[in-house]
Design a protein around this nucleic acid. Structure first.
Lengths: 205, 205, 205, 205
DNA sequence: TATGAATGAGATTTCATTCAT
DNA sequence: CATGAATGAAATCTCATTCAT
């Protein structure tokens, strides 16, 4: 047999690693499982990645790099900030609750303290960039006289926090009996609350 | 050796357990370490708690039981829902970012998938009760004509999500260089956004 | 409260020990279990018996001492050896398959290698005396012209072996589906085979 | 280290396991000891057998499968039942008192109650088949007018019981001072008693 | 390049036994 | 007498990582 295209080897490993980390977390995932899922030997894994840590970091990098650029348009033009924000929230909610991605925040949060480089990497490349996009969106809305915001950095965390909680809910609590969340409905309700607030509005809106 | 005051034994263990889980997560924490930190034998640990799981759950219980009752008054009486909610948010933000508590969500989120009883316990005793209090607060506000809310369960998650993100931020990202968060300021800004929303209000508010 | 008659203490312990050894074997029986069954502390056990071994030996002794003297009359007088032997077999079959005694051979056989004193004790006090009685019975029969036997020691083992197998059958194999044995029927058939042999007899008997 | 011929690995483990179970029983045998006896690490043991139980069962299976088929001819033809029976007894006595096999009944009897699958397996594959062969032999003798037997199942247990007792004697009581048994002499005496009975025969035999 | 085989270093949990009170 | 509390010493099983081939 011709050896099956070694070019895909790395991608195959990352796929299997994603599934395994997703199912069992970082510490719980066994290199054995990943190797078996790819159909190669454990030792072959170590030819491609020098350690479990390195494999995990490569995987997270890869996933992030393909996700973030799609979260919001590069140039907002004349678009309503509300619309851009609603789309951002819907997109992130969809992605973070996607079984393929869900393990990422879970593992970062759970084992970030044990793997500082991981936390740093994630902070710089994911949190930092994600919140940066949100700041730009809100500034865009303020500039258009559409939004108000007294504390920009905290507002971005308020927005992201709800999405993150939904992702955690889905992967951690639904399997043990929590009421299921539907991402798009959740995204809409989240956006409604964030945009309109909970206080009764006396204006026409 | 003289037996050291047995009344503190259980509390000493819980203290040491808290520090150890805090430093190494659930799977990473060794019963040996906890025992050594208390200054007793591993077997003595098993006299007080039948398993690592039980020890962790007892610890979380203890922390939660002393925290939740203070988060909101048992009877809201004539109090403004806004006030109650602001106090709840401020209190929870303060507590969850306290280094003594911070490990709890981190461990649950990170390792909940591997230890379903842990996740189930936390969901029932912490999440469930916390969100329950929030629902009661919002219902109280709606009853008073003070608040509106189309999707109650999701609104509670929007509120909690921001607080949770702040806790994670403090323990996971600040150590690797993230801009520090001040809990009370964060709580106020979070409450402002949630109550008033981001959209410009045309009413007098 | 008056302390409950300490005279029964030792007997209560032996009772509980018998039940526990019966249910879990020697290694499997925990001193904790025995103490709890008596309703005393583990330490109180050690006031009465210096070790698990000693407790087991005392128990076996007690059981044996009350059993053996009844197995055969001290003086055979003019009794038919066949009758004495049939009675002995019936008595032993009854006793060894009694749930109260059944654990004894099981434990001796199973763990005798690990506890040589146990095996030695049992060999001296039970096997030795039991086989001694059998030898006396057969000698009595030979003296009367009633029995023949070329190899006395082996004949006694042939007799005891069948009884022992029945005891083992009852406690080890019946619980996993073996056809049940009725001790008195088994004793009769065993005696018939031993006395008459399997070969067709051409004499009038 | 050079890897020692992997083909023998499994057999080497079984050999060491046999010795260890022989010396210490099932519960008493430590995987560490077995591994050290083979000259491999404990972990290597678990590559070949998933658990201590599995190792034990594999060992017993192996020993039984090589033993039973040799105990009696498949077709008795015109052979005297007495001859077949004497051969069966001699063969089994030889095998069961062989130090290599002796631990099997000992462990089954002693620890069968704690490991029901083990007892069930042994009952079905060893006891059942062994007694089946004996029944066939006796039926053969009855058909030839050579033997009589009123209670077939019990007669088989009478036969096997003596052999079993000899095996137990050799491994449990000889080490603590019992008079040694010589298997072939024992087998002959056992067969004599079983065939001719203890009662004086008045016929010419 | 690829792997089967091997392992070192633990981890949790158990229990007979002791001893201060 | 009685005990609650304590422990040392094991025992089974796991897994990331290595290396001869």
């Amino acid at each position: 047999m011709a050896r099956p295209k070694p070019l895909n080897r790395r991608a195959d490993i990352l796929d299997a690693a994603r599934d395994t980390f997703n199912a069992r977390g970082f510490a719980g995932a066994r290199m054995d499982d990943i190797a078996r899922a790819v159909g190669i030997s454990k030792a072959a894994l170590y030819l491609e990645f020098p350690s479990k840590n390195a494999l995990f970091q490569a995987l997270v990098s890869e996933l992030i790099e393909t996700m973030l650029p799609q979260a919001a348009p590069a140039d907002f033009g004349d678009l309503s900030a509300e619309l851009i924000l609603r789309n951002f929230i819907a997109f992130m909610a969809e992605r973070l609750t996607d079984p393929q991605m869900a393990f990422v925040p879970r593992v970062i949060i759970g084992e970030g303290a044990n793997f500082p480089e991981l936390a740093a990497f994630y902070h710089r490349h994911v949190i930092g960039r994600g919140l940066g996009i949100l700041e730009r969106i809100i500034r865009h809305g303020i500039g258009r006289g559409e939004l108000v915001c007294a504390d920009l950095p905290q507002a971005t965390r308020t927005i992201v926090g709800g999405i993150l909680l939904a992702a955690i809910w889905k992967t951690t609590f639904e399997p043990v009996g929590a009421e299921p969340i539907e991402p798009s409905a959740m995204a809409q309700a989240h956006a409604d609350t964030l945009l309109c607030g909970l206080l009764v509005r006396k204006d026409a809106a």
